[in-house]
């Protein structure tokens, strides 16, 4: 049985469509990523799957349970960490955890094994109020609270937004170890580089799913040959590349610009000559493999 089955879900707020005909399945024990910018519909989808709001059309199952008929049962089986920090600011670390355990009719001791590795990192601060925690610690606490009733499926809505790269790495380590323990994880993120850490991903934008696949397949299916171009003055280089008739797309990617070409086969020497004539220096052109972000941008560009 699938961990999550979503078929033809649509939802609008007033006249604005938030989700349009969403379909996907998540396998038990996988990390399934919803990748897309703000406004893609990720939060709305999570809120429907955690039975907090109703879809206008379509249906979905969590395991064999129906999100409408069986909403009470689903609530005991899923853990949900919303995007905004949603713990009780005036309760201490320990009190928050205790509270969530009690609500789900369990105790901290009963499922301590599951949260042990994460909780030990914040245990030295267990008498500190939640509002006095740093961003990284708040997140660890929220994750513990979402896990304390040993859910089958964990929904994490943008757990790494606004979080620095170190805490982001730590969080992904935690998710991997939770997967080892058999928990299915649905996670959303606007950071494309995190897509590679999921087993499968769905690219979302404007309330639609553009494509679902493993990160590796997304990359191998990237349609055009791609080159990285570097030079001394990167901003000038960007404009000059765009003025070249054979250059189809050109985007800055950190220390290089990624380009695709109209005729598919780029004669590197020719482009180099063109760029040198425009006054660029230290030109380096290399064929490269696409990143997840290249894939996302190609799919959205074809919209």
């Amino acid at each position: 049985m699938k961990a999550v089955t979503v078929s033809h879900i649509s939802k609008s707020y007033a006249k604005t469509p938030a989700l349009q005909d969403i379909c996907f399945e998540a396998e038990p024990g996988e990390i399934f990523g919803l990748i897309g910018p703000d406004g893609a519909g990720k939060t709305t989808l999570f809120r429907i799957l955690t039975t907090l709001i109703l879809p206008d059309k379509g249906n979905a199952n969590i395991g064999s349970l129906d999100i409408i008929k069986d909403y009470r049962e689903i609530r005991t089986r899923v853990g949900y960490m919303p995007g905004r920090f949603s713990l009780y600011q005036d309760l201490t670390v320990e009190e928050n955890l205790q509270f969530f355990a009690t609500v789900f009719n369990t105790t901290i001791e009963e499922n301590y094994d599951l949260i042990k590795n994460i909780y030990q990192q914040i245990e030295p601060f267990k008498t500190r109020r939640a509002k006095a925690l740093s961003g990284g610690m708040k997140q660890k606490l929220a994750l513990c609270c979402a896990l304390i009733h040993k859910p089958d499926i964990l929904f994490l809505d943008e757990p790494t937004t606004g979080v620095d790269p170190v805490s982001r790495k730590e969080l992904w380590e935690m998710l991997k170890s939770l997967r080892e323990q058999g928990i299915t994880i649905l996670v959303s993120t606007p950071y494309m580089d995190e897509a590679g850490l999921c087993d499968r991903i769905a690219f979302m934008t404007g309330g639609r799913i553009l494509r679902i696949d493993s990160p590796q397949n997304m990359i191998t299916q990237y349609q055009d040959p791609l080159w990285a171009v570097r030079g001394k003055n990167m901003h000038k280089l960007l404009n000059d590349l765009r003025s070249n008739k054979n250059v189809k797309t050109c985007f800055a990617f950190g220390d290089a610009h990624h380009i695709t070409c109209y005729d598919g086969s780029l004669i590197e020497k020719e482009l180099e000559k063109f760029l040198l004539e425009k006054g660029n220096e230290e030109i380096l052109i290399q064929p490269i493999t696409a990143t997840i972000e290249d894939c996302f941008m190609q799919l959205t560009n074809h919209e």
């Binding site: 910018p37 901003h235 972000e293």
Partner: peptide, 20 residues
């Protein structure tokens, strides 16, 4: 202060072009 958080990849790059 974190001007591009949550912004889609294409717009994020357009934003940097405004900065330039």
């Amino acid at each position: 202060d974190e001007p591009t958080g949550g912004v889609d990849p294409v717009t994020r790059r357009e934003f940097w072009e405004l900065i330039y």
